[in-house]
């Protein structure tokens, strides 16, 4: 009898934990969002500033992900297929942008890009500024999403059957053709999964961007910073509406990721 009681107590605690920690807070956002009423919700979301923040975030996240696809695939390829001095250290460094607190990353890029630094001065002398504008946001997004594609592609490259590559050579195919026709299709699932993760992280990123984007409404204000601003000024409605949009987007990406992962298993 006591045994059973213990069992039920444990189960209740675990389910309760899940509800209190995750389910209830997430539902709170949606409940709050719908309590606005549809027309009100629509009005808040399509507010000029909010709408701009949302579209800007999506646009820049797409650009950052595209950049990441190129450099991530390149780095994964080099780190698995070539041996060279320092490789091990570089391989461990890949995760650093993920491990670094985002506030730290933000301060870091602030230091690099500020007009007082020699980098800032150099860029200034050729008429480029990378701070407090959209390129700053892209830099921040590329930095925080650095590990995702590399780490998603690496295991696929490691498992790539070397015989398939050699078979392609024996059939007369050049290295480049072999990469396009044999290697690339094999790592494509990793690139897709990695870029979905990177995209969703770029959408959600706050710390780095808050520090280096300048947060200028209608110019460099991204969705997460917009939400933060609305909370600060106690505008729950604005924060809720944009949160609902951003959350839904993130869940969608998560869902697609799981879908592709499951298909990849077969």
């Amino acid at each position: 009898m006591r045994d059973k009681l213990e069992k039920y107590a444990l189960r209740s605690i675990l389910i309760g934990y899940l509800i209190v920690l995750i389910v209830a807070p997430l539902s709170a956002v949606y409940v709050q969002g719908f309590s606005l009423g549809l027309s009100n919700f629509w009005k808040t979301v399509t507010d000029e500033m909010a709408l701009h923040a949302i579209t800007l975030t999506i646009r820049l996240a797409v650009i950052a992900t595209l950049i990441q696809i190129i450099i991530g695939t390149l780095i994964a390829y080099v780190l698995t297929r070539y041996e060279f001095p320092g490789k091990r250290y570089l391989n461990s460094l890949v995760d650093l942008p993920f491990a670094l607190p985002t506030a730290v990353s933000g301060v870091m890029f602030l230091m690099v890009l500020t007009p007082n630094s020699f980098v800032g001065q150099m860029l200034d002398s050729i008429g480029i500024s990378l701070l407090f504008n959209q390129s700053a946001i892209i830099i921040g997004m590329v930095f925080v999403t650095f590990p995702f594609i590399v780490r998603a592609v690496q295991p696929l490259l490691e498992n790539l059957d070397e015989d398939q590559v050699q078979a392609s050579y024996t059939l007369g195919a050049s290295k480049w053709r072999t990469f396009c026709k044999v290697v690339f299709p094999a790592i494509l699932p990793g690139i897709i999964a990695g870029s979905l993760l990177a995209f969703s992280r770029a959408l959600a990123e706050f710390g780095v961007i808050a520090l280096i984007s300048g947060n200028i409404p209608m110019e460099t204000l991204v969705a997460s910073v917009y939400i933060f601003g609305q909370i600060e000024s106690f505008n729950t409605e604005g924060a809720t509406a944009v949160s609902v949009v951003l959350l839904t987007f993130s869940f969608l990406v998560l869902w697609i990721t799981n879908l592709t992962r499951r298909r990849g298993d077969i």
């Binding site: 050699q166 078979a167 024996t170 007369g172 050049s174 026709k181 044999v182």
Partner: peptide, 27 residues
């Protein structure tokens, strides 16, 4: 390898997994 005009059959066949039989043979 490409210049030698050889055919090579690998122990585990090394078929291109993402290609059909036709595409494999046509490669």
């Amino acid at each position: 390898v490409q210049e030698r005009e050889i055919g090579f059959v690998f122990q585990n066949y090394a078929l291109f997994k993402h290609m059909t039989v036709f595409e494999n043979v046509a490669y």
